[in-house]
């Protein structure tokens, strides 16, 4: 239990996927103009990352390892994620048209979100068990959600501020992300193991 808590809070705060591991920067910078679209994207990402962690864990441990095909990891994982995203899209379209309306345009983009492929590879390289892999997937995507929603809120405000001409748009967004990342660096002082060990 302690290990799961450490993985979860580690993924959300200490090693935030976006701000300290640099995974998923493209959607973080691209889809953060408004809070509601950022929230829609993050729900879709949480969904896919949790699912992808579980499915790739089975694929790796039930198919690749017994057959000695570990070198096919990259090809296999990316195809699984692409197929999974398609499947999720179809299921949501059939079962909940309202949710599909909200998430529709973000779902295909998730295939090329490197946080998804990143978390599945991390799960294997850290040799997590199934439960830990699933928690890591949820934690990573929750960290992504936290970062992108906070960032979108700041960017909404930034539209009204007076920014030097050459810093407008992308450069100022990067600098803002840098300041946010500095704030998240403050969490790295926590010793999670000791904190949850005491409880």
């Amino acid at each position: 239990m302690t290990k799961l808590l450490v993985i979860f809070f580690g993924g959300v705060l200490l090693n935030n996927f976006v701000l300290s591991r640099f995974l998923g920067i493209c959607p973080f910078l691209g889809i953060s103009q408004r809070v509601d679209t950022a929230a829609g994207m993050s729900i879709a990402v949480i969904f896919v990352m949790g699912l992808a962690s579980v499915v790739t864990w089975f694929f790796h441990n039930m198919i690749l390892v017994p057959m000695g095909l570990e070198y096919l990891q990259t090809i296999g994982f990316i195809l699984i994620i692409a197929a999974l995203v398609q499947l999720v899209e179809m299921v949501i379209q059939k079962s909940s048209p309202t949710l599909y309306q909200a998430l529709g345009i973000y779902l295909p983009l998730i295939t090329t979100n490197c946080a998804v492929l990143g978390v599945t590879i991390l799960n294997i390289s850290e040799s997590y068990n199934l439960l830990e892999a699933a928690v890591n997937g949820i934690a990573g995507s929750s960290g992504f959600a936290l970062a992108i929603i906070l960032f979108a809120a700041i960017r909404e405000r930034m539209e009204f501020s007076d920014i030097p001409e050459s810093l407008k748009g992308f450069p100022i967004a990067l600098i803002t992300a840098g300041l946010m990342s500095m704030a998240f660096l403050g969490f790295s002082g926590f010793k999670l193991g000791a904190l949850f060990g005491m409880m």
Partner: peptide, 22 residues
């Protein structure tokens, strides 16, 4: 060389390039 440095350096660098182009 910590994560914030990456964001800020790249932001300032692109800003500088924009300034030169403008």
């Amino acid at each position: 060389i910590l994560p914030p440095g990456g964001f800020i350096t790249l932001g300032l660098l692109i800003g500088l390039l924009n300034l030169i182009t403008n």
